[in-house]
Design a protein around this nucleic acid. Structure first.
Lengths: 351, 351
DNA sequence: TGTTAGCAGTCTATCCTTTAGAGTGCTAAC
DNA sequence: GTTAGCACTCTAAAGGATAGACTGCTAACA
């Protein structure tokens, strides 16, 4: 589709633009890249590339800016070339940076995101793991000092929730144990998504015996609390680190642009939507500009990778920035990061 | 110190400036506030006020801007007048907005902060509760599917931590129960701060019997994990909500100023320091500008209130913004908020 | 036919100048 | 003690001129 020279010109423009954030002129290319042709020739090529939708001009006598289409071509090329992975990535050690025994997955990932943002100077995002396929392994009620009862909900992957139930009268330790066992038996083994639907539909406890069960009322009033916790667990949360890095990009030196990007980032639903609408099978996934997706903000890209424990529960972690991202570096960094993070998670959280 | 008319002029200027963010001139005051004197008289008063350090001029022919000293006077006056509390505060219902049964304190406070930031259009900050006075009520080891062991650490106030211990060989449920009891007994009743010191100094388990205890090694390897969790619990964390609200203030329309404020806010240690260096006994506490405190940023104020469960564990929640804060409104809002939040917390978390 | 030098034309960003307006401080009168 | 009025100060905004970074085109060249 594009002959080799056109590709070289295009990539040169993209590299320049990623570096400088300024529209790139034909002379810049002929001086800085050794293409063996004059600026006039490059001008002609650029004109063709513009016609084919790979380049844009902010105004008639300005240099060219790569289009979404150009970045897509460029990025796909980068993703294809396996060689990149070893090429540029500096060394880092996720395990040392982030893992202190005793963290839960979310703490761990938040630290990893912090690390990623400091390391790359971009803003990092983490979508919390989705636990909808997990199952409850154990439920334990523990008496607090007053009327409170601590409900410990343990998932098969070690994730835990600890809601508190406020009882109306003191319940004995023994009773709580019995109830723990009953509830555990009732809810064990069902995956959270199904369990959520079940409880949401007002599921209530029915004992075998055809007479009123002495704990039934209590158990039924604990179910909604467990429902809340499950809702938490199957709801994806989004965290950010390094928001101020946004200000490092010249495209956001205009306060209005910075503001709208920040608002966009704070609007977690939109970003979750963008992430959800993208195939997540790849090693590293890149959303460029408004590709396929409605977003109130143009000109941003998101590059993500998956993290998982075992191979079921996973979330996503990545970086957000202007469309003019340093894709080459970030792809390498994220590939490396992805490998390290999954090793660390398997070590820390999987069984 | 200041006669009544001077005070009136000063407050008029402060009110104007809080409202407009523009230097205030004598004519503005004489037109908008019914002081019964001409602008020339006000000019004279303003000149005096400047001499006494209550007002500043950005340049010779501009209007006046209130100084730190002026805000302090104004704010102290507001804090003294009890009447303010009922005057302006709109209605809100923290309990409905934030409490879903099953939240833990930190989730709850994060929601409360979100609410506060949306309600006021300022950026809210929450310092997590300090648990150094809490004691461990119960420790329970729960087996996971593989070699993992979930450690449930329950504090007397219902706060829970759930670190995971990766064991080298499978431990039976019964053994875990025995160990749970031993560890519980060992650590129960000591407040976290002391416990932290104890464990940090390499405390290890010594059984009464003068022979090697069969669980000693295991227990000693679990202590450091508990230590990590305790460290988490006595470390104060800081959260923010509504960062983009910063952009609503005209003083931060300059990108450099916005950037430096954001960096400052992201630098949690500095803010924690500011909060720590302030007496926190008052209902509502206000730090104006650089009062008493080193900070790389001038011209910001922080207004906070305490939250607590029972009367021991507490953290702080508040709002951060330009020195030109809407103190009157915010004081009212925070007083009200403080009342509501503590009621809600007592209901949800205290026993 | 593809490449190149060179030049006219385009558009912006920047710098300088001018101007309007907001505000002070002083003076003289009440 | 208060006030009107005026000269003076300073900024922020608007307008105008200029430099410079490009492109696109044409004509010459290999």
């Amino acid at each position: 589709m594009l002959d080799e020279r056109k590709l070289k010109v295009l990539y040169a423009i993209i590299d320049s633009y990623i570096d400088s954030a300024e529209p790139v002129g034909s002379r810049t290319i002929s001086k800085n890249f050794n293409l063996g042709v004059s600026s006039a020739t490059i001008r002609n090529e650029m004109s063709d590339l513009e016609e084919q939708g790979y380049l844009n001009k902010p105004y008639s006598s300005a240099g060219r800016i790569p289009s979404e289409k150009a970045y897509r071509l460029y990025v796909d090329e980068l993703l294809k070339s396996q060689a990149t992975i070893e090429k540029k990535s500096k060394d880092f050690d996720i395990k040392n940076m982030t893992s202190k025994e005793g963290y839960d997955i979310e703490d761990f990932m938040q630290n990893a995101a912090k690390f990623l943002s400091v390391f790359t100077n971009y803003t990092s995002i983490v979508a919390s793991p989705k636990f909808q396929d997990s199952i409850i392994k154990h439920i334990q009620l523990i008496p607090l000092e007053g009327l409170g009862v601590l409900i410990v909900i343990v998932l098969n992957n070690g994730m835990v929730k600890n809601p508190i139930y406020k009882s109306t009268k003191k319940i004995s330790s023994n009773d709580l144990n019995t109830i723990s066992n009953i509830i555990s038996e009732e809810l064990k083994g069902i995956n959270l998504e199904e369990l959520f639907i079940k409880l949401e539909n007002g599921y209530s406890y029915k004992d075998d015996k055809k007479e009123p069960h002495k704990y039934k009322e209590l158990i039924d009033s604990i179910f909604p609390i467990i429902l809340n916790s499950i809702e938490d667990l199957i709801t994806i949360e989004l965290y950010f680190e390094g928001l101020t890095n946004i200000f490092n990009f010249p495209e956001y030196k205009d306060i209005e642009k910075a503001k709208s990007l920040m608002s966009f980032i704070e609007n977690k639903d939109l970003i979750l939507n963008m992430l959800a609408n993208t195939s997540s099978n790849e090693d590293v996934n890149i959303i460029i500009g408004n590709e396929n997706i409605y977003s109130p903000i143009k000109d941003i890209s998101i590059i993500t990778t998956n993290y998982k424990t075992g191979d079921k529960i996973f979330g996503r972690v990545g970086l957000i920035g202007p469309m003019r991202m340093d894709y080459e570096n970030l792809i390498n960094t994220l590939k490396r990061f992805s490998k390290d993070i999954n090793e660390a998670m398997n070590f820390l959280f999987d069984e």
